[in-house]
Each structure stands twice: as structure tokens, then as C-alpha cells.
Write a protein that binds this DNA or RNA. Sequence first.
DNA 1: GCTTGACTTCAACCAATGTTCAAGTTCTAG
DNA 2: CTAGAACTTGAACATTGGTTGAAGTCAAGC
Lengths: 126, 126
Amino acid sequence: MTTIETHAPELLTVGEAAELSGTATSAIRFYERQGLIESQRTSGNQRRYQPWVPCVVRVARVAQRVGLSVQEIAKVLEDVPDEPTPEDWQRLTDHLIADAERRIAELHAVLADLKSETKRCDLPGR
Amino acid sequence: MTTIETHAPELLTVGEAAELSGTATSAIRFYERQGLIESQRTSGNQRRYQPWVPCVVRVARVAQRVGLSVQEIAKVLEDVPDEPTPEDWQRLTDHLIADAERRIAELHAVLADLKSETKRCDLPGR
DNA sequence: GCTTGACTTCAACCAATGTTCAAGTTCTAG
DNA sequence: CTAGAACTTGAACATTGGTTGAAGTCAAGC
């Protein structure tokens, strides 16, 4: 971990990263502890984030809303290199969407299954 | 709340309901406290569940996996009457699927948006 | 009618996902 | 160079979604 000049070009403070990703700074630090994102440090020990980090956080937040845990998201993000290329974003996108669709399919399946098990679930004649 | 004869036909004990829904009895009691399901009581104060209750629990569990909180699921289930008809199950199904699809759409949207904001997220030139 | 397993409540605990606060440090503007 | 905003860590707290355990009650079979 090489430390970074205080005013490095393009790097974001934790506050800036929070604002750009629409979260609180406490969440940003939490996600870093959980391994979703990484930071460099200034000589004075302050965090500095790469400019794409807020994008990662935004993705993570939406992924949570479709049912992934932070650990699961961290796992998916492991495969995304630092300084992601458009192709990396595309693969991440595909992965997350596929994952979410899989759960929807499960939901469909359970619901369909229930409908077929009429005897137990529908109880038609009272 | 009329109490029920001990050995009422077709009613399930908490253990049976748990087994049929693939959860622990503690979860069944928890879901009841949260208003997802209801029970009657025997004269000896034991819970007795209608036979479709395990189905509701199964649905709830899958719904959790697509990102709904227990409170949100409870809200959806409010609209399902006791002794649901096939049409009730159908509406529940539609509601839950629609809800889940909505989140997937959000995920799609965020990801698409990120891709369009190339300047901030892709950083093509190193 | 007694035994045994399943049930009851209540309280404590757990993990996940953060937020809040206190005490101290760094950064930036003037 | 200094004031104030933004940062640091660590600990405590909050909420959600349960699990576990103790102490006691109920129900079913012999």
C-alpha cells in the first residue's frame, strides 16, 4: 500500500465517494471493511478512492435490493479488477442480472408448485 | 378467537407446519408474531394452523430471497384472505413477481446508467 | 393415569448491516 | 499559521430476522 500525495488528481475523499454514491460515509467505510471496495491512504492516513468506486457502491446497493448479501456481492466483485474496463462492467452486469433472474425463477417455481399442489394450498370446498 | 378442539380435523400443530414449510418452529412463531400467518388455539393454548399456512410460509421465504423484508411480505399478505382461493393465490403470485421484477428493472437501470456514464465509471485510458 | 414428546412463554443471544458518538488528527482556505 | 471542516478509529447502539434455552404445560399412547 503506497501512500498517496494528499491532493492526488481525480481521487475522492470518503465524503465525496459517499455523496457520489448516494450513501453515508459510515456505509462507505463499512463496505470497505467488507471488501466491496478498496482505498489508498494519504500520508496523513485519510482514505482516497478511485473515481469509479461510487459506481461500484451504487451497483452494490441495488444488488442488495434484489436479495444479495454484502458477502455475496463481495464475492461477485472479486472478479472485477481494479480500474474496470467496459467489458468488466458488462460481465458484472450480466452476473448480477443472471443472479437476480435466478431468484425470480425460484420464486416462480415455488409459486407454480404451490398452485399445482391444489389439495394442500387452495382448499376449494369449504 | 374461538378455541378449537384438541384434535380438530386437518389443523396443523406448529411442528407440522414447520416441517411442511421447511423451516424451524421458531421461525413459524416469529412469522406469526410478525403477522404473516395466523393461528387458532386449542383449549390448552397450543397453536393450530390451517393447512395452507405452510404454503404461505414457503412463499414468504422465497420472497425474502428476492429482497422483500418480512414487513413488506406481511403487507402483501394482508390482501390475501384466510382460506385463499386459487384466484387469491394467483393475485399473490402476480403481486410478488411484479415486485421482484421491479427491482430487477431497477438493477438493470442502474447498471445501464453506469454504462452510459462512461466518463466516471469506465475510465478507459489508464 | 402416567410417561414422554411436543408444546407454551420469555429472555437471552446471534449475525448482518449499518449509524452514532467521542476523542483526536488532517486538510484547506484565508 | 491558524480556524474549522472533514477526516481517523473504536465502541456502543439500532434494527431485522431469527435461534437457543429454561421452566413449565399439554396431548397421545400404553
